[in-house]
Nucleic acid binder design. Sequence first.
DNA 1: CAAACACATGTTGTATACAATATGTGTTTG
DNA 2: CAAACACATATTGTATACAACATGTGTTTG
Lengths: 224, 224
Amino acid sequence: MKKKSLRSKVYTSLRSDIISGKLSGGTRITENFIANSLGVSRTPVREALQKLTQEKLLVAIPKAGYLIEDLSDYDIQDLFENRMQIEQIAFQKASQNITPEELKILDDNLENTKAAIKSGNNFQVTELDIAFHEIIYKAARSKTLFRVCKNLSDLTVKYRYWLNLIPNLSNESLKHHIMIYQSILSKDTQKLSQALLQHAQYANIHIVGVMKKQRSDAFSKEDF
Amino acid sequence: MKKKSLRSKVYTSLRSDIISGKLSGGTRITENFIANSLGVSRTPVREALQKLTQEKLLVAIPKAGYLIEDLSDYDIQDLFENRMQIEQIAFQKASQNITPEELKILDDNLENTKAAIKSGNNFQVTELDIAFHEIIYKAARSKTLFRVCKNLSDLTVKYRYWLNLIPNLSNESLKHHIMIYQSILSKDTQKLSQALLQHAQYANIHIVGVMKKQRSDAFSKEDF
DNA sequence: CAAACACATGTTGTATACAATATGTGTTTG
DNA sequence: CAAACACATATTGTATACAACATGTGTTTG
């Protein structure tokens, strides 16, 4: 195992807390607070916070710390909508360039997802969801598209995690993945386009309700 | 005027040196070297370098400094090709949402570009080129698309600057901008799509030659 | 009482010293 | 001579001290 810098440890830890909702949107944090919590100096913390700020997971408030980014419903829908549009480009290219080995990995991913849903391992469901998309990004054979898609994927992770907490929705998502897989397998451009559209629309339909629940949960946790 | 941090000064200065080619691709730099050159401590330099690394203008070499990113011809073409694909999405949305005021700004931009080409102000030609695209990004009314397009635009600036050094090419580019402007004005989806395609293709055709010249220039500058 | 000023406090910004690590070079040793 | 080891050097990584600055609070003053 590679030895990691404190900066990257702080980054990973903080990022996972933000994505999981442990640090909920709107929460204010400071360099010292994080440094003390993790028992390191401010230097690696600063650098991790700056990276997260650049990735839009945090917002820097001049001379007053940082806030956990809290997207409005409108911005979340914008994010999902346009991520899908850009994924359309990547997925179409992927369907031209994907190898049998990669198709096999996708197939395995679907099987594992089915099992994870059955066993109720929500964290793993989301991890597999992310992996599914990422395999296809890679198969597009474009550094540019990979980078952009990965970045947008990161921004949606938090919300996808919450969506997958609802069993019906993770099942629905799996169905879409299967449809996407089959479209790529048969190189059916039309069907692929439609499957992706459906995949994004289902998120857009449900995300508002999920966000409302998430916010009220965070609120009551705060109060009592 | 807003007071700027040293970090952002270092960032701006370094970024402009990279984009202008003053620091050419493949050059190695270290934190101390930059800190001494600019007369500041390593701290703000480090943070600026990390930001530039995240933006893919630099590559970090563990325990050995940084390299100015030097994309291969293949990667440059990938960048231009897929930036255009994503701009297609943004530009189509922009043509639906753009305001008369923004159209006026585009029109002014074209006039100013014509003048800048005539007067041979290459730096300004590129600045106006960047501004033209950015106005349209904004008109798409999507934070996500704006962010992605802006990021990809930044990555291409260096190359667009070199392309515009050749008078023929900046004129050709202006023609494409006029065509794009007219397509947006008349909301002609097809024509817009084609204009953008042409705009990107012309870059892809000429960039390899320009890069070859740039590299040999940097080489001879190094030697004598 | 209201306004303005001064000061304490919290927070980021910057400089600096030291630690950890990778790389190359010279020297030792079989 | 070749291999391995030790050491000097260059570089990033981290901790810490202090500076700059913004904000709120209490006190002074008209």
